[in-house]
Design a protein around this nucleic acid. Structure first.
Length: 923
RNA sequence: GGGCGCUUGGCUCAGCGGAAGAGCAUCCGCCUUACACGCGGAGGGUCACAGGUUCAAAUCCUGUAGCGCCCACCA
């Protein structure tokens, strides 16, 4: 049969061919109501704006391995795909594009039009990343692809919002939030990145109103002085306690503000006096709450100074205002000193602009009850993290979770399902979010306040209560007025992501899919979104579905560049997975990534790492070519055990053990261990030994039964290898399978090999001792003596420990002759080896092998080799003797350990004795 | 300020209580009829440092140092 396989594996054509075939036959698709057990993974939905990067490649390779494995185990394995609308990120991308191309800002375009533009953008580019996932081999059930802004998911979002609201778990309040002045929106606490920055600590004098002196406050943000409404000191601070109640004149304003005493103040920091700006600092906000201080918001939403800052400063950017005010203070003699000060400054995680703590009306989710349920479920073992250490990481966050700000002042997202009735009159109310300040004194249910108002205040001034509804209302149920308006804000993207494990399966409809696939099985993600996403899915899953969304969470490492830095666009240090797939093949990339990704450790990547996967694929490819060349007349039926040759028995034994190892590793999420164990087996056992040994039988046309047995075993072993490797290397295995096993269907839906007891344990041992060891001994001598591999050695003799082994060795002698290129191999008892003159010698515990020098081998080289061996053996003896000489070792160590040491001692002594004799015999 | 992770051959990493391992790189032989993306052989590590526990420690404990993440409302 002409081999259909090219000499080197060429991935490109193979990959597109099989991916199309799998999809065409619907093999990624599972029924809504499967007959067999369900296994489900929901993909961490990539942002629609995203392009595939190495992190995705690793993340999705691991998911695909699990899905393909479970599919081959007979599960209805659903990999639920989809994308995330990624509110701020996507809006930013499209806004930037419009600004660049048309010079228009979003305000000029308007809400409806911008949203339309973003949808259009999504139509065009939104599926790009899903197409890229296909190139990886991802076997997602594409028919079920979802998008977080889909009709169905939008229904889920509304349902969830309304339920939480009805239970008092969602409220609206005026609070200091993290405000991004560039994105013009609030951010959740965990959407803020803190970076240490060099700043200054300005010491500013606030004169007493009565002119009797001054206090000095220390601040990192002098520009907020304009919004100060008090100075605070610690009540226990003897220096200042007596000042409580005294008024100070606020510089650069005509306001007088009180000195208040508050425990929050740290007397040891700065001067021990704090300026209090309730509208611009979360701590000050709380001090303000306690002391009933006014809040003066001196900034606009773009972080320029507002009219409240006074005519001098209004309109200035915050930095300019800082400079100006510092200058003014200096001139007024109120600036005492400036110290260098390093402190953490918050930045927007989307655009890296410095965050402004800003007072505004926002919607919050009350976290306490949700988090407590999640903690309980996790402690009950319903959610297990791998590696385990992430459990603590996640629990700690849940334990400290503050209320979640879910409203965003952007346009791309799920609009908050709340409507306000404008009846009875239009009034002067400003419905733009975040505009009804400063100094509003509405009751404030602050985050973390357990008993805040559960009924959200209506937007300023409305008389009818807000309408919170699943369906868009047409009139106010209270007054029947039709002048109603929906809240302008949209929900945090993570609100819809939190529902992903059940919203994608059909919730809130009671679908078959939901019934069968929820809770899902495993979540695979990276540590970066444990808080954002994993914790919130658990909370929402418990709340909405009354069950955790998944039982296992596998957290893999982060991909870094060669120097250990994160790969990022701005650094330009990324490796593009599509480039790698192009150059090395998808399988090669997958395999390298999996091998490198050990126990969730971060992995430093460079392009050369992919050689390993590529070489391995090529090795497998060529092993298959070899098999194909020898299997044209392979028997259809299995040979009886009696007909199996020793090498056949050995490889079947090793195959069974490897199978068990791989299954155990996969069950334990030890992807790297599984991959390495297959690599080792395929390369170092199957190719290096079995294939080489099998040639003996395959070429022996005289012995048909032996040849047939090996043909069959070769085919069995190779087909098992293909099955075992398929989850890791889907393309190449399917391709080889197609040629090797025509008429057996596609490998993707083949059955994953079962572990079970390893057969031929004893024969395997015989093969190791009577074949591998002598061959290695001869190769060692050959290699050390620089004997060309092609040069045949006329004669070699091995001595073994017992007659039974000698008998086996006599039977397997032709393997040694074949593998070591020896014309005549002889097996004896060690004791019968006799005269060792004129030979090169190799000694191990199980055998002594000698080769007559016969002009082939240099005596001096052989002597040097023996001396090296002797030195090594002497070292072993010394170490072992030390142990055995230790009385308490003999007494305290377990008997089997002691016996092992004694055995080792006997072996080392025998070895050194034999080596010395060989050295002497050399003369 | 807390928490977590890492520190093992030149490089990237396994091993996590009983004789130091892999891949790459290096050196020596080889185009041996599946594969030079290959074959055979070899060299190379006092397992960051200091204490401790143990018969036994790369492996457990306690410190120290360096690197890296994450969290945190000290102005």
């Amino acid at each position: 049969m002409p081999t259909e396989l090219a000499k080197a594996y060429e991935p490109k054509a193979v990959e597109s061919k099989w991916y199309a075939a799998w999809e065409k036959h619907g093999l990624f698709h599972v029924p809504d109501a499967p007959k067999n057990r369900a296994y489900c993974i929901v993909i961490p939905p990539p942002n629609v704006t995203g392009a595939l990067h190495m992190g995705h490649a690793l993340n999705n390779t691991l998911q695909d391995i699990l899905i393909r494995w479970k599919r081959m185990e007979g599960f209805a394995a659903l990999w639920q795909p989809g994308t995330d609308h990624a509110g701020i990120a996507t809006q930013n991308v499209v806004e930037r594009e419009i600004l660049k191309k048309e010079g228009k800002r979003r305000q000029e375009i308007g809400r409806e039009a911008l949203i339309e533009r973003i949808w259009k953008w999504r139509e065009e580019y939104g599926d790009r990343i899903l197409l890229q996932l296909r190139a990886l081999g991802s076997s997602c059930d594409w028919e079920r692809t979802r998008f977080t802004l889909d009709e169905g998911l939008s229904r889920a979002v509304r349902e969830c919002f309304v339920r939480l609201y009805d239970e008092g778990l969602i409220y609206r309040g005026k609070y200091i939030v993290n405000w991004c002045p560039r994105c013009h929106t609030a951010l959740a606490d965990d959407e803020v990145d803190h970076k240490d920055e060099k700043g200054s600590l300005w010491h500013i004098r606030y004169p007493f109103a009565d002119g009797t002196g001054f206090v000095t406050v220390a601040t990192t943000r002098p520009e907020t002085l304009l919004g100060d409404t008090a100075v605070a000191v610690n009540p226990k601070d003897e220096r200042y306690a007596h000042l409580e109640g005294k008024m100070v004149q606020l510089p650069e304003t005509n306001r007088q503000i009180p000195i208040v005493a508050d425990d929050f103040v740290d007397s040891t920091f700065g001067t021990g006096c704090v300026k209090v700006t309730p509208a611009h600092d979360p701590n000050d906000f709380m001090i303000g709450e306690r002391h009933n201080l006014p809040r003066i918001n001196v900034m606009n939403e773009d972080a320029t100074m507002s009219a409240e800052a006074g005519a001098e400063y209004a309109g200035l950017k915050r930095d300019a205002c800082r400079e100006k005010i510092v200058e003014a203070l200096k001139n007024a003699g109120l600036l005492e000193k400036i110290e260098d000060h390093q402190h953490a400054v918050g930045h927007c995680y989307r655009c890296h602009t410095t965050i402004e703590p800003w007072l505004s009306d926002q919607w919050f989710v009350r976290m306490r009850p949700l988090a407590e349920a999640a903690i309980r479920a996790t402690e009950e073992g319903k959610v297990k993290f791998h590696p385990e250490r992430w459990t603590q990481f996640y629990l700690q966050w849940l334990e400290n979770a503050r209320d979640w700000c879910i409203s965003r002042q952007i346009w791309w997202g799920h609009r908050i399902p709340v409507w306000y009735c404008k009846n009875p009159g239009p009034g002067t109310r400003n419905l733009e979010p975040g505009k009804d300040f400063p100094g509003s004194r509405s009751p404030v249910p602050g985050p973390d306040s357990g008993s805040g108002s559960q009924v959200p205040g209506p937007r300023s001034g409305s008389l009818c209560p807000p309408i919170v509804a699943r369906e868009t209302p047409t009139k106010c149920p209270n007054c029947g007025g039709q002048d109603i308006r929906q809240d302008d804000d949209v929900l945090d993207t993570w609100f819809s992501s939190a529902l992903w494990p059940f919203s994608t399966l059909g919730w809130p409809e009671k679908t078959e899919t939901l019934a069968h696939y929820y809770p899902t099985s495993t979540l695979v993600t990276d540590r970066g979104i444990i808080y954002f996403w994993v914790a919130r899915m658990v909370m929402m899953g418990l709340k909405m579905m009354n069950a955790v969304p998944f039982s296992d969470v596998y957290i893999h490492g982060t991909i870094l560049d060669e120097q250990g830095r994160k790969m990022s666009k701005s650094l330009g240090n990324g490796i593009d997975p599509l480039d790698i797939i192009d150059k090395y093949g998808a399988d090669a990339m997958r395999f390298s990534l999996v091998v490198l990704s050990t126990e969730g450790q971060d992995l430093k990547l460079s392009e050369s790492k992919f050689d390993m996967g590529r070489n391995f694929c090529n090795k497998l490819w060529n092993a298959a070519r070899f098999a194909m060349m020898n299997l044209e007349d392979a028997p259809a039926t299995a040979p009886s055990d009696d007909d199996l040759n020793l090498a056949d028995r050995w490889i079947l034994n090793r195959l069974a053990i490897t199978t068990s190892d791989v299954r155990a590793a996969l069950s334990d999420f030890k992807f790297s261990v599984a991959a390495q164990s297959l690599y080792q087996f395929v390369w170092n056992e199957f190719c290096d030994w079995y294939v080489e040994a099998a040639k003996l039988h395959l070429n022996d046309r005289e012995n048909a039964r032996s040849r047939a047995a090996t043909q069959h075993t070769l085919k069995t072993a190779l087909s098992s290898i293909l099955k075992l490797l398929h989850p890791f290397l889907p393309f190449i295995t399917e391709e080889i399978w197609g040629t090797l096993m025509p008429g057996h269907g596609m490998l993707i839906v083949g059955q994953y090999p079962n572990g079970g007891a390893a057969p031929f344990e004893k024969d395997a041992r015989v093969f190791e001792i009577t074949v591998k060891e002598p061959v290695e001994a001869i190769r060692n001598i050959r290699g050390e003596s620089n004997l060309a591999p092609t040069k045949r050695i006329p004669q070699a003799v091995s001595g073994f420990n017992d007659p039974e082994t000698v008998l086996s060795a006599v039977m397997s002698g032709n393997y040694v002759e074949h593998l070591a290129r020896v014309d005549s191999f002889e097996a004896k008892l060690k004791s019968e080896l006799g005269d060792l003159k004129e030979v090169a010698t190799n000694v191990t515990a199980n055998q002594v092998t000698v080769i007559p020098l016969a002009g082939l081998i240099d005596v001096a080289a052989e002597r040097a080799r023996l001396e090296k061996e002797i030195a090594r053996a002497a070292g072993e003896i010394e170490a072992t003797a030390r142990k055995l000489g230790n009385e308490s070792f003999i007494v305290r160590a377990p008997a089997d350990i002691v016996e092992k040491e004694r055995q080792r001692m006997r072996e080392s002594e025998e070895k050194i004795e034999k080596l010395k004799a060989a050295l002497i015999a050399l003369g």
